[in-house]
Simulated assay, not measured.
Amino acid sequence: MPRHSPCAIANEFLRRRGSPTYPSQMYIQKLVAIANGWNLAINGEPLVSEAPQAWVNGPVFRQIWDFVKEGGFKGPNSEIVDPITGQIITSKISGNEEEILDHVWKKYRNYTPQQLSDLTHQANSPWAYAYFEKGRNAEIDTERTRQYYIKLALAGRSNAEQEQALQTAGRINAA
């Protein structure tokens, strides 16, 4: 069962970023979308309480868009605040979810906003299906997202196993 608002997950990345400078909304949107995909694949459930929409530049969580538009980035790490209460949006993250967020942050933190957008625009991606089959701003299907990230995980595991086999073969041939 999804537990967290998209803004709370965005704030997890903004805290990890640890900068008072304003981030690109595209950067934050894509990190949340990628984390949601990995959580679906690994933990079997959405990380966030709403599905992203297929906008021109990739997946967008409407809540993040609206809250940044209304309240902007505030707080010591430019966190997103609730435009009505002015409070930084937080949520209690489980250990498994924390691992996903850490993994996504370590792997993708140095990507540019455009590189993250490009990742979400791959052929056969959940964004591509929603955008081209259902239409601009359509909701991105959760199950399609889960299956897509499972395939990415399996492909990554297969590549790692092939690399390890090649390294082992190289050691055997060298001996």
Rank of each mutant, 00 (worst) to 15 (best):
residue 83 P to H: 08
residue 170 G to M: 12
residue 91 S to N: 03
residue 158 S to W: 01
residue 34 I to H: 08
residue 65 W to P: 00
residue 55 W to V: 07
residue 7 C to H: 00
residue 101 L to C: 09
residue 166 L to S: 11
residue 124 N to K: 10
residue 56 V to L: 13
residue 140 I to P: 11
residue 16 R to Q: 08
residue 141 D to V: 00
residue 2 P to M: 01
residue 122 Q to F: 02
residue 47 L to F: 09
residue 145 T to N: 05
residue 116 L to S: 10
residue 105 W to Y: 14
residue 102 D to E: 14
residue 73 F to L: 02
residue 90 T to K: 03
residue 140 I to L: 12
residue 100 I to V: 09
residue 105 W to L: 09
residue 35 A to I: 04
residue 121 H to G: 11
residue 143 E to T: 14
residue 136 R to I: 12
residue 37 G to E: 04
residue 83 P to F: 07
residue 33 A to Y: 15
residue 103 H to L: 14
residue 158 S to R: 12
residue 57 N to G: 11
residue 13 F to T: 03
residue 104 V to M: 07
residue 36 N to V: 08
residue 154 L to H: 09
residue 93 I to P: 00
residue 17 R to V: 05
residue 2 P to Y: 02
residue 137 N to L: 10
residue 98 E to I: 00
residue 69 K to C: 06
residue 25 Q to R: 09
residue 50 E to H: 05
residue 82 D to E: 04
residue 170 G to R: 13
residue 67 F to D: 10
residue 163 E to K: 15
residue 128 A to G: 01
residue 15 R to C: 03
residue 130 A to Q: 06
residue 80 I to W: 00
residue 10 A to I: 00
residue 142 T to Q: 09
residue 148 Y to I: 07
residue 161 E to D: 13
residue 23 P to R: 01
residue 93 I to Q: 00
residue 140 I to H: 10
residue 131 Y to A: 07
residue 29 Q to R: 02
residue 175 A to D: 10
residue 129 Y to T: 14
residue 7 C to M: 02
residue 56 V to R: 10
residue 53 Q to I: 10
residue 77 N to D: 11
residue 170 G to D: 13
residue 53 Q to E: 15
residue 58 G to V: 06
residue 114 Q to F: 08
residue 139 E to R: 13
residue 169 A to S: 08
residue 17 R to F: 01
residue 63 Q to C: 01
residue 140 I to W: 08
residue 133 E to K: 15
residue 163 E to L: 14
residue 130 A to P: 08
residue 19 S to K: 13
residue 154 L to W: 06
residue 94 S to M: 05
residue 63 Q to K: 13
residue 144 R to H: 11
residue 54 A to W: 01
residue 113 P to A: 13
residue 1 M to W: 02
residue 141 D to Q: 01
residue 28 I to T: 14
residue 71 G to F: 05
residue 59 P to T: 10
residue 152 L to N: 11
residue 52 P to T: 08
residue 127 W to Q: 11
residue 133 E to S: 15
residue 75 G to I: 02
residue 149 Y to I: 08
residue 74 K to W: 01
residue 166 L to T: 02
residue 52 P to D: 09
residue 41 A to H: 04
residue 134 K to Q: 14
residue 171 R to T: 06
residue 45 E to F: 09
residue 32 V to N: 04
residue 127 W to D: 10
residue 109 R to G: 05
residue 63 Q to M: 13
residue 122 Q to V: 03
residue 119 L to N: 07
residue 162 Q to V: 10
residue 119 L to P: 04
residue 134 K to P: 06
residue 46 P to F: 02
residue 146 R to P: 13
residue 53 Q to W: 00
residue 143 E to V: 14
residue 165 A to G: 06
residue 100 I to N: 00
residue 152 L to K: 14
residue 113 P to H: 05
residue 17 R to Y: 05
